[in-house]
Design a binder for these strands. Structure first.
Length: 593
RNA sequence: GGGGGAGUAGCUCAGUGGAUAGAGCAGCGGCCUUCUAAGCCGAAGGUCAAGGGUUCGACUCCCUUCUUCCCCGCCA
């Protein structure tokens, strides 16, 4: 091959994008297509090829031309492309689809170029290079224990954070803890009423939850209690020393409990800028919005109307309560200002429950008007919302009524169930191995069950669903990983030793697996475009499934050196891809299970 | 009343205007003296909620209707 290496198709990590450029360039060279033509390339049904370009059909329609003839002209132009020579087989089918089949030579070349987590990363980083993104997730309220309803923001947020970082963004992880809300009015009122000493409590969080429940019930029945709670909150927000001290004690015990969960789930933040962090920053928000004419007064509260948006014409955005206290809109606005002006983030991602969609739409609209008036840099804002976890009754799992499953308990149960399966499948393993495996499998299954489905769907909480270990689950992927490690252990060879002895792939299983490996960047691209990790889950499951078929049909450790070498190569790339993908989901991989 | 989500196999869910709508689970039939059977192979399973429309082509876009969940001023 005489062309420079960069020009060759197999030198491109993201084949779809390279192919798109190639097709569009070739199309223009025919003189029959103008700038409006786009290749519209996508993975194809394996019966027809590996990629299909559908763009000829709409173009022909717009220009009243015969699509089939146009497609054939373009295809024959592509046949003579030197960069495609011997790497892809091109054909035209149906009304004007152009199909591309990657040749074994292409596959081998690509797999040699992209061989490890490090090499994937150094290519993937071009997707989001230069972006500075702050992501806000988990964000529990203090004074309460985390329950199953807090699971999704943690798991989805952590995965998205890892994916964005892997794809080259500079990511800042923020835990916007609810430590300054109305719950403190009720809590402080109840603590004082019952003369509780927080320092002497055995199970402080349990006690605080009980106090909160009692206090909450009281405010529902007694006007006096309601006013008491309100005035405690106002005193706290005005800096009353006694209330501040109690508030700090409450937060301290909450943080300890959160940190235990985060440690177990392998989650960490760069900053914990809770609502209280912004308490001296909300006045500027009130002043600026008032001064710009974005906000107005209504029933004693400060609100923003978006009358230009049909949906919100009668639904104001309340940014300051009539008693002068801040609410979550105040702190969220202050947060955007701080993150953009003080920290220089160009993009902010919020990972929360879907029930907050209206809030975030109004928040984003308000920021847009406000920042435009003040000529502040306009950030890109994303609300990554997810469906609600429902109880058996089909209603949202609630904090106040009933007792939702505690996160601590869910995690313990996940590991315990995994342990009993390890015990059953592999009783001879050392105890320390069993425990290590149980933890990875149990926590992995929990995470994967949440990530595998499109985040915008609700689902009913069920132990057996969240902690399933069969089929499309983390253990299935982990099992493929463990089997590959077993092959390398048995062969006693390092991962890349035989690359150069590999012959071209031949069996249907080898070819199908190799082609799937080349498609990894597409899954990454889908995940970052929509901020939906389930694309990666589905890709990894299909990859594992193809690996398992390959593993059953094609023995790796055979005598012929070239066959062994190419199967080794497939194993090493499958391993690298699975491990990379699982790590992006926040799942720890195993060598043994 | 306004707005948003969902409705696809018995169950849980994928599906970017593209070719014969796909998985997992459950159930059925096979495969372990060979690199880990937490696996593989096979068969079966569908009025894509209903009805219209747009077009070369609709699960996908538009309209109407039905079912269901959620949000809509001082909670977050």
């Amino acid at each position: 091959m005489s062309e420079s290496r960069q020009e060759v198709l197999s030198a491109h990590f993201f084949v779809e994008s390279a192919l798109t450029q190639l097709i569009e360039r070739a199309a223009r060279a025919t003189g029959l297509f103008d700038e409006s033509f786009s290749a519209d390339i996508r993975p194809a049904d394996p019966r027809f090829g590996d990629f299909q370009a559908n763009g000829v059909l709409p173009f022909a329609k717009r220009n009243k031309q015969n699509p089939r003839a146009l497609a054939e002209t373009l295809a024959s132009k592509l046949q003579s492309e030197p960069t495609l020579d011997g790497l892809a087989v091109i054909s035209v089918a149906g009304p004007g689809f152009i199909n591309f089949s990657l040749t074994p030579r292409f596959l081998l070349s690509w797999l040699k170029n992209f061989a490890s987590e490090t090499s994937f990363q150094s290519s993937a980083k071009h997707f989001l290079e230069g972006k500075r993104i702050s992501i806000d997730y988990s964000s529990p309220n203090t004074a309460k224990q985390m329950h199953v309803g807090h699971l999704r923001s943690m798991i989805i947020g952590e995965s998205i954070q890892r994916i964005l970082r892997f794809c080259g963004a500079s990511v800042h992880r923020d835990n916007h803890i609810g430590d300054w809300g109305t719950q403190f009015g009720i809590l402080l009122f109840a603590i004082k009423k019952n003369q509780v000493d927080l320092a002497t409590l055995q199970e402080p969080l349990e006690e605080l939850e009980k106090l909160y429940k009692e206090g909450y019930a009281l405010t529902k029945t007694s006007e006096e209690a309601l006013n008491g709670a309100r005035s405690e909150l106002v005193k706290l927000q005005q800096g009353d020393a006694e209330n501040l001290h109690l508030w700090q004690q409450i937060n301290a015990v909450s943080y300890r409990a959160f940190d235990e969960i985060y440690a177990e789930m392998d989650i960490a933040f760069d900053n914990v800028w809770g609502e209280s962090f912004y308490r001296d920053k909300v006045d500027r928000v009130y002043n600026e919005l008032h001064e710009c004419g974005v906000s107005e007064e209504s029933d004693g509260a400060q609100v923003v109307f978006h009358r230009d948006v049909e949906q919100f014409k009668d639904q104001p955005f309340l940014i300051r309560k009539s008693d002068g206290a801040s609410n979550y809109a105040s702190t969220d606005l202050a947060t955007v200002l701080f993150k953009v002006l003080e920290c220089g983030f160009g993009e902010i991602v919020y990972v929360t429950d879907g029930r907050q969609q209206d809030h975030f739409q109004q928040l984003f609209l308000t920021v847009k008007k406000w920042f435009a008036k003040k000529h502040y840099p306009m950030p890109e804002l994303h609300h990554v919302w997810f469906g609600t976890i429902l109880g058996e009754d089909g209603k949202a799992i609630k904090t106040r009524s009933g007792d939702p499953i505690r996160l601590k308990e869910l995690i313990r149960e996940a590991i315990a169930r995994a342990y009993s399966i390890v015990e059953e499948k592999n009783p001879d393993l050392a105890e320390s191995d069993k425990q290590h495996i149980a933890k990875a499998v149990g926590l992995g299954a929990l995470r994967y069950a949440d990530l595998v489905q499109n985040r915008t769907n609700d689902y009913v909480f069920a132990w057996d669903k969240l902690l399933s270990f069969d089929g499309n689950t983390a253990p299935y992927l982990l099992y493929a990983v463990a089997r590959i490690h077993a092959i390398f252990r048995k062969a006693q060879l390092p991962l890349f030793d035989l690359d150069n002895s590999a012959s071209a792939f031949e069996t249907p299983e080898e070819l199908a697996l190799a082609k799937k490996l080349v498609a990894f960047p597409f899954a990454l691209k889908q995940a970052i475009d929509e901020l939906r990790p389930h694309f990666i889950c589905h890709y990894l499951f299909e990859l594992s499934s193809l690996f398992s078929s390959f593993y059953n049909a094609n023995r790796v450790l055979v005598d012929e050196t070239d066959v062994k070498a190419r199967r080794f190569l497939l194993c090493s790339r499958t391993l690298a891809t699975l491990e990379t993908g699982l790590h992006l989901l926040g799942i720890k991989t195993l060598h043994l299970m």
